[in-house]
Amino acid sequence: MRARLRRIHIDGHTFTWRAALHTVQVNGFYRRAVHVRAWGPGGKTSQKLEADLLSAPGPYVVDNGYPTPADVRAVIVCGLKSGWQPEQRGGTFVLSDREHGANFAATGFQLTDPVRPGESGPTTHEARQRG
């Protein structure tokens, strides 16, 4: 089954996005992870934005909901503030907690360094919180 591409309008510009859900184990606990991709007005030929999000901290994955438009808006706005150039042709701009976490704010999610299913270990965000 193909992932559905969705559209969002921000400040007069149309962005196309999609998200893939999975879970990762972090310090022995399972967390919902979302891999978000977005493209600018040029579609898939424009520079792609990628971000990995983790659900808010908790002992178990309790939901499997898709990110809301507000969550995706937060990813895109963070990308734009951090130097993503959606009008540029080709390439990928990756958001990571280490480099861009200070510009990211979404309810229920935290930006993390890129993760893939099966990976584990503390995120940069969690390591900073511990000191």
Rank of each mutant, 00 (worst) to 15 (best):
M1R: 12
M1W: 08
R2M: 13
A3N: 08
A3Y: 14
R4G: 01
L5H: 09
R6A: 07
R6I: 05
R7V: 05
R7H: 12
R7F: 04
I8H: 09
I8G: 03
I10A: 04
I10C: 04
D11C: 00
G12D: 06
G12H: 07
H13G: 00
H13P: 00
T14E: 15
T14L: 13
F15T: 08
F15L: 07
W17I: 02
R18Y: 14
R18C: 05
R18P: 00
R18K: 15
A19C: 15
A19H: 15
L21F: 01
H22W: 14
V24G: 03
Q25S: 10
V26N: 04
N27R: 14
N27Y: 11
G28Y: 06
Y30E: 15
Y30V: 08
Y30F: 12
Y30L: 11
R31E: 11
R31M: 10
R32Y: 03
H35Q: 06
V36H: 03
W39S: 10
W39P: 02
G40S: 09
G40A: 06
G40C: 06
G43P: 00
K44E: 15
S46H: 02
Q47Y: 00
K48H: 09
E50T: 13
E50K: 09
A51P: 03
D52N: 14
L53W: 13
L53N: 02
L54H: 08
L54M: 05
L54C: 01
S55T: 05
S55W: 04
S55L: 02
S55P: 00
S55K: 02
S55N: 00
P57K: 12
G58M: 06
P59K: 12
V62F: 06
V62D: 10
D63I: 07
D63G: 09
N64E: 15
G65T: 13
G65N: 08
Y66N: 14
T68G: 01
T68S: 08
D71G: 01
A74Y: 04
A74R: 07
I76S: 03
I76D: 01
C78V: 05
C78R: 06
C78F: 06
G79D: 07
G79V: 04
K81D: 08
S82D: 04
S82W: 10
S82T: 08
G83L: 05
W84G: 01
W84A: 01
Q85R: 13
P86E: 10
E87C: 04
Q88R: 15
Q88V: 02
Q88K: 13
G90L: 06
G90P: 01
T92Y: 01
F93A: 04
S96N: 12
S96C: 14
D97M: 02
D97A: 13
D97V: 01
R98L: 09
R98K: 14
R98D: 11
R98P: 00
E99V: 01
H100T: 11
G101M: 09
A102R: 15
N103W: 10
F104T: 04
A106W: 09
T107V: 15
G108A: 01
F109I: 12
F109D: 11
L111I: 08
L111W: 12
L111M: 13
T112A: 10
T112I: 13
T112M: 05
D113K: 03
P114V: 13
P114T: 14
R116P: 00
R116G: 02
P117N: 11
G118D: 07
G118T: 07
E119G: 03
P122Y: 13
T123L: 07
H125Y: 15
H125W: 15
E126W: 05
E126K: 02
R128E: 12
Q129G: 03
G131C: 05
G131R: 15
